[in-house]
Design a protein around this nucleic acid. Structure first.
Length: 886
RNA sequence: GGUCGAUUGGCGCAGCGGGAGCGCAGGUGCCUUACAAGCACAAGGUCGGGGGUUCAAAUCCCUCAUCGACCACCA
């Protein structure tokens, strides 16, 4: 039978129309604001997803976080704006399109630059559309009618303006440097884009013959992990502190194979403990060697072409790729008797973060951004707290990154991207950066050419927060910027802290003289269920679209936020998503319950007439405060941990249960109406608090609930104001309900322990103090209906014969069992309980006889413990009494 | 090599100086007319090891162990 009920819920069928309704009603556009925050803006720029792929879990989490923030801000009356857009992702897209074309047998070089860019445009339109659709499936309330793109006409103007300005301000310069070169992508990439991977390798010990033997020595031995680069050696370095080689400094060796005479010199960089203490120096193919080469004025011999094949002039080695060349070089050394020996050696090797091929440090002409001035100010705004990180410890990571920053290589030898706006005249040598394309040389009139390279994707991404707001067109007075800048919060995972976050700060401070955002929220990285990064090869990936289909967007959103902590990573947990789906279902059912009991309902102010009313309103007041506080620190885990138990346990499990008898047709109509109004009110406030996280189910309920509508849609409704609810705080009502619940639980517990059906009515006797007795008597109907019992409470009640007892602080609950009790079992249970209470009494007694404790502990703590001890001692006595009675 | 983080019931996690909690799994009993994607009840942990501070430590400090991330990198 149960099987029949398991109908698949069609989430999309419920979610899509709501999304469309919001969109049609214009809620995704900038909100106008209302109430006390009406004059304040709250803006978020979405970290633009790359146009290379589809939505992944990282996006799902990050976009949920942003939508949750923006929805709450909208409900609080801020003027909200969530800027949507995508990133052209230069190297990533080019790689994908290359591959895509290759599958059709097309080579990029054959079709040429223009045709290739066209292919990229097609690709980005397709994938850009896909990913924006997926964002909308999540319910994200960003401005879909103002979609940005990092290579749009408008955005390109900004990129160009920044390049030209920075070039003229001497922040951008050109230089021949060692850069990380990807021989597969045939482009330079920035240091931050290189990934180190540990590899098992070898150390080859090579003999370099001395040009003239010294003291009987014919050769020196160098150790290297890359023997093939010896072709480009222009020196051998030793440590200045190394006595072994002191006499060789100034001498020369004859480089084998190429027969070049190269000097032996001393340099502080050399560690005399490593290898033989002699280092072969290849300035053109190693950054450290390059530095040594600069210090000692060594020539740079480039032995590789752009695809890492040996260039002309090296005989049979020419044309070999670097791996072949390595084998060949080692073989030649062996033939010549110059291979001393080989050792195993593990080391880390740089790989391209896109294609994962080994990178080659390669000498080439590139464009750089000088970062010294930029980075100083970018550090200041974090040090002085103008920009705050959440969790705060990430600010140190940011500052460390900034501190280690070196000049940034921004040119890429790609076709897909912002072409560098530099123009050169080959006739007269004129060159300049220009906002407009230039055909003829202003100096000599000859034809000029534009630089072939494009800019690093991050050069454009860094402008995202302000270039999307008409900065290039209208400057810092752009109305968008005046209203919506700085943005409120930037939410991202930590991996692009340096690549993106820090650079946005640097460029924004320079270009707009403002910080780009007040808060940086670093959320945990979503790992697979195995705790490892999600990846195709591991097969531990989870598809958000699939998740939304099976659990609903609300379920996915709540489930993801449930897992958010201050940690660096979170392990994806299906169970959390599943319980969130169940939670959404619970909300739906609770609403259904309320709405099917609204016969004769008329709207009106809530009226709190019972302790249950006062209790749930008091708990609601606390909830609002807790949720607000958790939002202040972006503690989404805490937010869900407040909302979930309130709604499920306090509202559904207790308050709704308490309401049932009041809702029956034969109850006093006025009491019934009060109850209905209170239910509607609590439900109304609950869905407001839940809406930022679970927009769909809450909106669906809002549309049907006859609550007071301050907005046609919940998305535009007013967020509960904690101050307005303070009047409902009522700890004594909370304690009263706690007592009622305790008694009901005690009855249920006895029932369960002795296997008595919930339908069998039981006689229950409660002994308690006068106040509690009064309360229980006033709530008698409640206890009796929920506990299926006949209750009598009295201060001087005594234990009826043949009853089970549940004792708690100040209250004794006796359930008459009329011969159903297994006294042995009851005795055993009581004995066990006695042992526990006895142990607690001993512990507390010891604590309270400790002079140090009495002298130094806070008085209220001591009072609390004394009270606790009195309770426990009392309880112990009563347990003993029970045991005797048995 | 440097920095930061983690170690709490079977699993995943919260709590971060004064009574060990949540979700899920597992156990028992319930198709109680909002919900079996549910309800009720019960069980389960000397909070990684050791030391210290404190009247009081899962919580603060030190140390060890294990795991993880980031940065740097020795040819």
């Amino acid at each position: 039978m149960a099987e029949d009920k398991k109908i698949e819920y069609d989430f999309a069928a419920h979610e899509r129309p709501l999304f469309q309704a919001w969109k049609d009603a214009g809620y995704f556009q900038r909100s106008k604001g209302f109430g006390k925050h009406a004059g304040e803006s709250y803006t978020i720029v979405i970290p633009p997803p790359n146009v290379t792929g589809v939505l992944h879990m990282g996006h799902a989490l990050n976009d949920t976080i942003q939508d949750t923030c923006i929805r709450r801000a909208r409900m609080r009356g801020f003027q909200t704006r969530w800027i949507l857009g995508t990133d052209h992702a230069g190297i990533a897209t080019q790689t994908k399109v290359d591959k895509h074309l290759a599958e059709q047998g097309i080579n990029r070089r054959e079709i040429g630059r223009e045709a290739f860019i066209e292919a990229c445009q097609e690709w980005r339109l397709q994938y850009g559309t896909t990913i924006v659709n997926q964002i909308s499936m999540m319910g994200c309330s960003c401005d879909y009618e103002d979609e940005q793109f990092s290579m749009s006409e408008e955005f390109s103007q900004a990129v160009r303006k920044v390049f030209v300005d920075w070039y003229h301000d001497d922040l951008i310069y050109r230089g021949k440097r060692i850069v990380n070169w990807c021989p597969s992508c045939t482009t330079a990439i920035a240091d931050d884009e290189a990934e180190y991977e540990d590899e098992k390798g070898h150390l080859w010990y090579l003999r370099y013959p001395l040009t003239e033997p010294v003291d009987g020595m014919d050769y020196i031995v160098v150790a290297t992990t890359r023997p093939e680069t010896m072709l480009g050696d222009t020196g051998v370095a030793v440590s200045p502190q190394d006595e072994r080689y002191k006499h060789l400094i100034g001498k020369t060796v004859m480089l084998p194979i190429v027969n070049r005479e190269i000097p032996i010199f001393a340099d502080f960089y050399v560690d005399k403990e490593f290898g033989t203490g002699c280092v072969k120096v290849t300035p053109a193919h190693d950054p450290n060697d390059y530095a040594m080469g600069e210090r000692h004025d060594l020539p740079r011999v480039n032995i590789f072409d752009e695809t890492a094949h040996v260039v002309e002039g090296y005989g049979d080695l020419s044309g070999m790729d670097r791996d072949e060349a390595r084998e060949a070089v080692v073989a030649k050394f062996e033939e010549m008797g110059l291979l001393d020996h080989i050792e195993d050696h593990d080391h880390s090797v740089m790989h391209c973060y896109r294609c994962h091929n080994k990178l080659e440090p390669w000498l080439s002409e590139q464009w750089f951004v000088a970062v010294d001035e930029l980075k100083r100010r970018a550090a200041e705004v974090v040090e002085d707290g103008t920009i705050q990180f959440f969790p705060a410890r990430w600010s140190q990571v940011y500052l460390d990154w900034i501190a280690n920053l070196k000049d940034w290589c921004i040119s890429r030898q790609l076709w897909w991207g912002h072409r560098i706006p530099m123009f050169y005249c080959d006739e007269c040598g004129w060159q300049d950066a220009s906002l407009e394309d230039i055909d003829t040389c202003p100096a000599c009139g000859a034809k000029v050419r534009q630089d072939d390279d494009v800019l690093d994707t991050w050069f454009s991404s860094q402008l995202w927060p302000f270039a999307t707001q008409k900065w290039a067109q209208l400057g810092n007075e752009s109305p968008d910027l005046v209203k919506h800048y700085p943005t409120q919060v930037l939410s991202t995972a930590r991996d692009i802290m340096g690549l993106w976050v820090a650079r946005m700060v640097m460029s924004s401070l320079y270009c707009t003289h403002q910080i780009p955002f007040y808060h940086v929220l670093i959320h945990p990285t979503v790992m697979g269920a195995d705790g490892k990064p999600m990846s195709k090869s591991r097969g531990n990936g989870v598809d958000p679209v699939e998740l939304m289909k099976n659990y609903g967007a609300d379920g996915m959103r709540f489930g993801l936020l449930m897992q958010v902590t201050g940690a660096q990573a979170m392990r994806f947990d299906y169970q959390k998503i599943e319980s969130s789906r169940n939670f959404a279902n619970k909300i739906r059912n609770a609403a259904r319950f309320v709405m099917m009991h609204l016969d004769g309902y008329t709207p009106g102010e809530p009226k709190l007439t019972t302790p249950a009313d006062m209790c749930i309103f008091s708990r609601l007041a606390t909830l609002i405060k807790d949720v607000d506080a958790a939002f202040e620190t972006y503690d989404f885990g805490e937010i869900t941990r407040s909302l979930y138990p309130f709604f499920w346990n306090e509202f559904c499990d207790w308050y709704i249960e308490f309401s049932k008898s009041r809702l029956s047709a034969d109850n006093d109509p006025e009491d019934r109406l009060n109850c209905q109004r209170n239910l509607v009110f609590i439900l109304d406030q609950s869905i407001r608090l839940l809406h930022p996280i679970m927009p769909f189910v809450t909106e669906e309920i809002y549309q049907q609930l006859p609550c007071e509508k301050d907005s046609p849609y919940l998305i535009g409704a007013v967020w509960p104001d904690a101050e307005d609810f303070e009047k409902y705080c009522n700890t004594s009502a909370e304690r009263s309900i706690e007592l009622v619940c305790q008694v009901i639980s005690a009855i249920r517990s006895s029932r369960a322990r002795y296997g008595i059906s919930p339908k069998t009515p039981l006689d229950v006797v409660v002994k308690a103090n006068d106040a509690d007795v009064e309360l229980l008597n006033s709530e008698k109907a409640l206890v009796e209906s929920i506990g299926a019992a006949r209750l009598s409470a009295a201060a001087d009640a005594s234990k009826p014969a043949e009853s089970s007892a549940v004792l708690s602080a100040g209250v004794e609950v006796y359930v008459c069992l009329s011969g159903l009790v297994d006294f042995e079992a009851e005795r055993a249970r009581l004995s066990k309980e006695r042992a526990k209470v006895d142990a607690d009494v001993a512990k507390l007694t010891k604590k309270l006889s400790n002079k140090g404790f009495l002298a130094k502990a806070a008085p209220e703590i001591i009072e609390k413990d004394r009270g606790k001890l009195a309770d426990l001692t009392d309880r112990l006595a009563r347990i003993d009494e029970q045991l005797e009675n048995l």
